[in-house]
Design a protein around this nucleic acid. Structure first.
Lengths: 137, 137
DNA sequence: GTGTTTGCAAAGTGTTTGCAATTTA
DNA sequence: TAAATTGCAAACACTTTGCAAACAC
């Protein structure tokens, strides 16, 4: 069997998304996609790059996160008015939100459950279903 | 049968919530609670007061909306990072969000469906379940 | 070389806060 | 009169933007 080579993989991912693999994008993509599923904010990623000694401006991180989201590599999760996460797991799933710690945790729902969600009014199309279970303690 | 007298009703609502019925709170409460279910932003309410010639500062509107929410008279709905609605319907229900128009619409889910939501990890308690179906077109 | 991407600083948005003046009970 | 509430302006947190310099192809 083939061994997955992370670097090439990440590089290909960017190319496939039509995003030039610049130093900044590659660094961010590696941090995001080569460490399992992650829930990150722009600020968190920025700290992470600084700790690693990688120079990427916060503006570039915001831009990059949105480019990745547009390309379908990330999913944006709005938790409250001033905390917006990006999730590297773009498959169908939902979240627990720990109000105390600000942490997000994946939550799986059965397919039946999703299927039971009402159809939208008129001829509108469902773009995304966001379910956030806010928990305490 | 008793005729419901809206003014008294609204006044009582404030008293019951331990909020002094000031001119500003009464005006806002009447706009919010005497016109059926509403989804409003602070900005929308502010415009509304100005159109009616009622003087209430935006800061007071924010403070009042949060006081009402704390008192259980309103429910806060975070739709995206820069659009936060307050819903006068505090009963168990969810929302369609029209991405094009920015409008919220109530959505009912069966009790079974809600019951099927996984229990939170550890001994955490569910504080609120927010379901937003984002729709297009 | 050409078009894309970056970083900076500045602007923007929506919200909260400190505090003196006002209002309520 | 004492305590709560208000309005203003300033502060805030987070995000986006304009543009010149740097970079990828």
């Amino acid at each position: 069997m083939n061994v997955i080579r992370p670097f090439t993989n990440t590089l290909e991912r960017l190319r496939a998304a039509n995003l030039r693999p610049t130093r900044q994008r590659l660094a961010l993509a590696k941090m995001l996609f080569e460490n399992g599923d992650r829930h990150v904010t722009a600020e968190m990623l920025h700290c992470e790059t600084q700790n690693k000694g990688i120079r990427v401006s916060l503006a570039t991180i915001y831009n990059t996160l949105h480019q990745f989201t547009r390309a379908g590599l990330l999913r944006e999760i709005v938790v409250d008015a001033q905390r917006c996460y990006f999730d590297t797991n773009t498959s169908d799933h939902h979240h627990f939100y720990h109000e105390q710690t600000g942490q997000l945790e994946d939550m799986q729902l059965s397919a039946d459950m999703i299927a039971a969600i009402p159809t939208p009014p008129g001829d509108a199309k469902v773009k995304q279903v966001d379910i956030i279970v806010r928990i305490n303690n």
